[in-house]
């Protein structure tokens, strides 16, 4: 596993939140460059997050949980806080039981995965009664964004080639770039395979729930043909960028799969991922074949799950026809 990006932090100890503030200010700046998430409804967080001097930055809000970026245990440990607020329309006792059960299920699955060597965020702490869970922060970007970046890049590459009329040379470069991308696809296939080997199914395996944690801290930002004068150098950047580790996140719907339903559950994971790829771009859909190929070789039962996927696909189509 590549090392987490370290923050220069000479004093972990003693007074003030300055290291964490600094860290989070950087994060905030990062945030501002990205499209801001939709507005958040205001929720009262449970203690100690109610009036904490440590910054809490809202990241996303799902149907069930609010997700913040913060620090935990030491000012130099970035973390994700996941809070499931009480649902006012549920009976309080039932609400607490459901919240507890779901948080605990997520934490258990994550710990199990981590023990088995599947790359997932570590569980750092939590309070089931209060409804929160603290997880290791995973640096990098979602595969969804990597795919978007890739598709955009493909676009200018084709245009650039047309303009300059660079025939064979351009194709050669393209193959190298493709190879880096195909390698990423194989890593995704193997990561999902490894997850399924442990008997866990993700339950919401979209490209937004797969992270690429880079080995080199900063992604190449140039998507314009004029930005990089040195093509070789940029090729290296791209390969280094795509050479990170695949980390699966958001296990809020994950489950320990029962033996009887395992094949079906696994196939549904793959089907959901396939739909997510297809939704990005036709090019991305083509890449998905490589994910499946690597998946098929990743553990003994994988081929059976792939066969089952065929059935799930048909059923999926049939359903949409009827609907």
């Amino acid at each position: 596993m590549p090392p987490e990006p370290t923050t220069d932090n000479p004093s972990t100890t003693s007074t003030s939140t300055s290291p964490s503030e600094q860290l989070l200010q950087e994060q905030q700046q990062e945030q501002q460059q990205q499209p801001q998430p939709q507005t958040h409804t205001h929720h009262t967080l449970p203690p100690p997050f109610t009036h904490t001097p440590t910054p809490l930055i809202p990241l996303t809000q799902g149907a069930e949980a609010l997700v913040y970026r913060t620090t935990f245990l030491t000012p130099s440990t970035p973390a994700i806080l996941k809070y499931r607020p009480p649902k006012p329309y549920r009976h309080p006792t039932l609400d607490r039981r459901l919240t507890k059960a779901r948080l605990l299920a997520e934490a258990r699955v994550l710990v199990r995965c981590r023990r088995e060597g599947v790359a997932v965020p570590a569980v750092l702490g939590g309070d089931w009664e209060a409804g929160w869970l603290c997880l290791e922060f995973v640096a990098g970007e979602t595969v969804r964004r990597v795919l978007d970046w890739w598709v955009e890049r493909e676009g200018w590459r084709v245009k650039g080639k047309e303009g300059e009329g660079e025939g064979e040379e351009g194709e050669g470069e393209g193959e190298e770039r493709d190879e880096a991308m195909l390698d990423l696809m194989r890593k995704i296939g193997r990561a999902v395979g490894k997850l399924h080997t442990t008997g866990v199914v993700h339950g919401d395996l979209t490209t937004s729930n797969i992270m690429l944690r880079p080995s080199s801290p900063s992604p190449p930002t140039s998507t314009s043909p004029n930005a990089s004068p040195n093509v070789d150098e940029e090729e290296e950047d791209v390969s280094a960028y795509l050479a990170g580790t695949i980390v699966l996140i958001d296990f809020g719907l994950a489950a320990q799969s029962l033996r009887q339903t395992q094949e079906e559950d696994r196939a549904v994971d793959l089907y959901v991922l396939e739909r997510a790829f297809a939704a990005t771009h036709p090019t991305a859909e083509r890449l998905f074949g490589e994910v499946l190929r690597a998946y098929g070789e990743s553990y003994p039962g994988a081929k059976a799950s792939l066969r089952r996927l065929e059935g799930v696909r048909l059923r999926g189509r049939k359903r949409s026809m009827l609907g």
């Binding site: 596993m1 605990l104 934490a107 710990v111 023990r115 570590a122 569980v123």
Partner: peptide, 21 residues
């Protein structure tokens, strides 16, 4: 070995968090 320690720490913090529940 730092990699080993990080991994072990991740698992152990998780086990402490889900303890007894």
């Amino acid at each position: 070995d730092n990699t080993n320690l990080e991994h072990a720490q991740a698992v152990i913090l998780g086990l402490m968090t889900i303890k007894g529940s």
